[in-house]
Amino acid sequence: MTMSPDGILEVVSDIYKSTDRPVSTHTIAEAAETTPDRVTPVLNTLCRSEFVEWTESGVRPTVTGRQFLELDIELENVVVDVVDE
């Protein structure tokens, strides 16, 4: 159902907010009504943009990811440039 990167980021953020724990790909796939195989590449893309971070037990949204969700713009329409200090 929610296979857009925005939808997946929102799912990760919502579940993390309610459980305060990293979210497994299985849980994300279930919430998005898809399979973990299809969710993983999207999560990897989100991870490269530093919107989520992989942990041993799943992914968690980063501060960057949460700030992005507040912008109300679609991830399909963005270029993300990670700049080191």
Binding site: E50, V63, T64, I73, V79, D81, V83, D84, E85
Partner: peptide, 11 residues
């Protein structure tokens, strides 16, 4: 960015 620095989003 959590680890310092920042992320520029162009849209």
């Amino acid at each position: 960015r959590e680890t310092g620095g920042y992320v520029n989003v162009y849209h």
